[in-house]
Structures are given as structure tokens and as C-alpha cells.
Design a protein around this nucleic acid. Structure first.
Lengths: 133, 133
DNA sequence: TAAATTCCTATTGACAAAATAGGAATTAAA
DNA sequence: TTTAATTCCTATTTTGTCAATAGGAATTTA
């Protein structure tokens, strides 16, 4: 599985925020109810989105989150990356993992690099606004 | 991660068999040495390839495996699928998993369906022969 | 008969994903 | 000024899958 609940939850939060653009700050409680996810679990995704600067947060009563730019200016790729860390289809293409010793001679690596490009091209071509129908 | 060592090993076996097409049966021991993988681990991948009819096996001394059709007639997709079971980018698109209750209203599902198509189109367009340089 | 092989089943270890928990810090509103 | 609602922080637990190993049975050629 390439995209886990972390990435999916990040995307759900963003879609919900986009659907309520202009309503000021939206609380995670509201989002959790609408998206039928646990508040506690969404909190970790929201924290990552906030750390990445994709959303603006406000603490305290009547606080919550809102988008930091128009929905059409977010790519799906950047949102998923904030939740997943990496979208590489194989571990040897993740920056975090140790470089593979056989990379020079591996006959399958070029294929996986191409696949990675195909995936990233697609996810970079989709915006958050595209997901609202 | 979408493609694990199971899929990668299946592909490595097939590439090695393709590189030795016409040499008769090739033993897993030879493949394990060339690809620097453990014999025991490759065995499970080979068994799946055999069960799927992608290779022909011969038991006993001087036995081994060989391709069941020309290398150019295999898609990379079918090989990876034999190792992975599913190449779906999200669990809710796997046949094996229980259907998602929110599928009707989920705003992210259409995107993931598109992504799945993009991936499968690419992997179906590549043949085993393409991997030999 | 011996050696080389695929085949079968089971088990273990390691790690990541998934989910939950409790409470601290903050802030608007009553 | 207090209270309630919220984000924020850290930790823990549970669960599941991946990865790898192990031992031996069945088969077949030399």
C-alpha cells in the first residue's frame, strides 16, 4: 500500500477545509464528525499539515484550522507528502533509506524510477479544488 | 510502499529467466547467486509465479524454471501482481478488503481510482523484454 | 543410489501502521 | 474572571504485515 490512512486523513482534512473556505477557522471536532474519523487520530495529521505550512491554526475556544492559500493552489502531491513523508513505490527510491548497493546493475530500478515519475506527474497535476466535484 | 520485496523478487526472477531464455531450465540456486538473494526467500516467489502459470517448473536434478511464453508477451503488471496480490494504491481499492461504507460520499475515492488507472496503464504497457536494457 | 532440485508448512523477528490516551497550553466567550 | 473549547505535545498500545529463516518431503536425473 502506497497511501496509508495518514495520507488519506490529511487529504480528508484538506477537502473539508476547502469545502468550508471562507467560514473562518474550522475545528477538528467538526471535521471528525463530518468525515467520521476519530478526533485523536486526525490531530496528528493536522499537526503535520500545520508544520508544513499547508494550513493555519488558531488555538483556544472557537479556534481551528483554515487553508493558507486558495484550494486551487494546492497540489494533491504536496498534501499526501505531508502525511506520508514519501510516495515512492519502492523502498529503494525513498530518500530516507540507505542507497542500494546493486543500484548500478539492478535491471528493475529504471522501471521503478519511471513509475515514480508517472505517479508524481499525476499527483502534481491534481489540485485540491479538483476534488470538490 | 506499494511494491514490496515479494513483487521485486518475482520481477528479478523473471528478468533472470528472460536473460537465459533458451538455456532450458534454470535453477533457483543460480538465480539466487546472480541476484544476490537468499534461495529460501526466492522459493516462495517462484512458487507463486509457477502457480500463476507464468513459469514452468521441473523438479529433481537439473530441474528449475523457465518462461512459459516469450519475454515480450509478459506485462510487468502481471508479474508484479503474482507477487503482490494487489497493486492498489489504497486499501479501499483492494478486492480482498471489505467495501468501504463511505464509498458513495467519499470525496477522495475518485482520485484514487484515477491514480490506480494511471499506474496500471503504465505497468501494463511495459513488457518483460523491455527490462533487458 | 546419490545428488540436486522443487515443493510444502511452519515459525520467528522486526518494523510500521493504526488507534488510543492523558493532559498541558491557549484563547474566546459567557 | 471563570469556563469551555480548542490546539498542541508526548507516550503507549495494539495490530498486522513484511521479511527472512528453517527443516524436511517429494521428485527426478545422472
Amino acid at each position: 500500500m502506497m497511501i496509508t490512512t495518514k495520507g488519506r486523513n490529511a487529504l480528508k482534512i484538506m477537502v473539508d477545509l476547502a469545502a468550508h473556505e471562507g467560514d473562518g477557522y474550522v475545528s477538528l471536532n467538526d471535521i471528525a464528525e463530518r468525515q467520521k474519523e476519530s478526533l485523536k487520530y486526525l490531530e496528528s495529521s493536522a499537526a503535520q499539515l500545520s508544520a508544513a505550512g499547508l494550513v493555519v491554526s488558531a488555538r483556544g475556544k472557537s479556534g481551528g484550522y483554515k487553508l493558507s492559500k486558495p484550494a486551487k493552489d494546492y497540489t494533491v502531491a504536496e498534501i499526501l507528502l505531508s502525511g506520508e513523508g514519501s510516495l515512492a513505490p519502492v523502498s529503494c527510491l525513498e530518500k530516507s533509506s540507505a542507497p542500494c548497493e546493486n543500484a548500478q546493475t539492478c535491471m528493475t530500478l529504471p522501471l521503478f524510477k519511471e513509475l515514480d515519475e508517472v505517479i508524481m506527474n499525476f499527483l502534481n497535476s491534481k489540485t485540491l479544488a479538483d476534488l470538490l466535484q
